[in-house]
Design a protein around this nucleic acid. Structure first.
Lengths: 220, 220
DNA sequence: GCCCTTGTCTATCATCCTATAGATGGAATT
DNA sequence: AATTCCATCTATAGGATGATAGACAAGGGC
């Protein structure tokens, strides 16, 4: 068996099970927090022995890194693509909200762990993620700034605070979106977008962006 | 010494030091999370022995309860007072934002622990706090509903989602308000209020609430 | 001077938890 | 059929951690 074949079979065989292991870790970390969770808890979810986990990761911290990596995956990239596009700042804002919320649908636990437990990562990877997130915030801030400069957004607010406010709003969704009563994610995007752009006040002449009533079949 | 005097002297003597102990616990819990923190860490902050802590609380969990209790203190009450007042919904909204942020000034660590670590409380107190918080959310939702019914707020948004959005926004402040570059809390209130009520869009006739330029000497 | 209270200390236990080492059984490969 | 590889197991080391028990020093009231 050649080296190439070996690495291929490794890439075929391991990932399936490894994925399951990491998913279990994500679930447990999300539920109890990193330090509140034991490797035994993870093993229980999988129905295997605690020590068997170490075949897949080399330490509990390592498992956290794997989970966080997947939880953080794509945020910056997706935002950067949207920001670099040719839409108006208002349209971009909608895209950014949507892009931030979309990962909650397919990997909520990973996102949760990434958001809540990343501070427990070893210094190196924590720094790396922090840097990525700063860049992410920057992207959003720049879109807001652009909108202010183009006259599309009001210019009397601090773009950084607006960015933080919006981020806080969307980040908090992870805490309740899958608890009853369940709200369709697309509706959250819609409402938050309208709220952010148009504001709560009814006393407006030309009210912000017209609300999209129905959306194209698959947009998510 | 009568029973009454005894209980008075207890309430005079202990609280000073007890306060310091709980403050240390709050600091450590805020920094490392409940399970990530050890009683030794708390003792180190105080410069005493780990075992000495147990003179002040009976278990680590008990310490968490004390910290969380103080962190949660007053939120619901302050909001209820504002909601019951005679101001307009718009004014009330400003008050609610302010009331939520104010505790960050004098006890940020307690609030942090309350927000991030309350899930690790023993079931009983966790339930109690959860209930209080639901009531708190309800108060905010009702103010928003009232504004919609009075025609002061736009009525095409889901009041619950608006409440969640606003809460997410203000809750996130605990994560960055005391990191450089520091922003005066009153300014955060102001900007978030304007953003929420007026929206980001510049295309409005009568723009939401006029921004308060200078505020009365002491409002906090 | 005596005694009680208060706050802290020393010493220690028992438990829990991560991580390692090496064995085992079955599947795949040769 | 023999060998190798993979995934899991058993057993356990080793350390950290929460908590208890009891000693002790300082200070105030009697």
């Amino acid at each position: 068996m050649s080296v190439v074949e070996l690495s291929i079979s490794r890439r075929r065989a391991k990932p399936r099970r490894t994925q399951e292991i990491i998913e279990a870790a994500a679930r447990v970390f999300a539920e109890r927090g990193f330090h509140g969770a034991t490797t035994q808890d993870i093993a229980d979810v999988l129905g295997i022995r605690q020590a068997s986990l170490y075949y897949y990761f080399s330490s509990k911290e390592d498992a956290l890194e794997l989970v966080c990596a997947r939880g953080a995956e794509g945020f910056l990239e997706a935002a950067a693509v949207i920001a670099a596009g040719s839409q108006s700042p208002t349209e971009k804002l909608r895209g950014l909200i949507h892009a931030h919320l979309a990962p909650l649908l397919d990997r909520p636990d990973f996102v949760r762990v990434f958001l809540n437990e990343r501070r427990h990562l070893p210094t190196a990877s924590r720094r790396r993620i922090a840097q990525t997130m700063r860049a992410y915030e920057k992207v959003i801030e720049e879109v807001i700034k652009a909108g202010m400069q183009s006259g599309e957004f009001r210019a009397d607010l601090d773009p950084r605070l607006v960015a933080y406010g919006m981020l806080g709003m969307v980040k908090s969704v992870v805490g309740w979106f899958d608890k009853p009563p369940r709200v369709k994610l697309e509706r959250i995007v819609d409402e938050f977008f309208c709220l952010l752009v148009g504001g709560l006040s009814a006393s407006k002449g030309g009210r912000g962006p017209t609300r999209r009533r129905r959306r194209s079949p698959i947009d998510l």
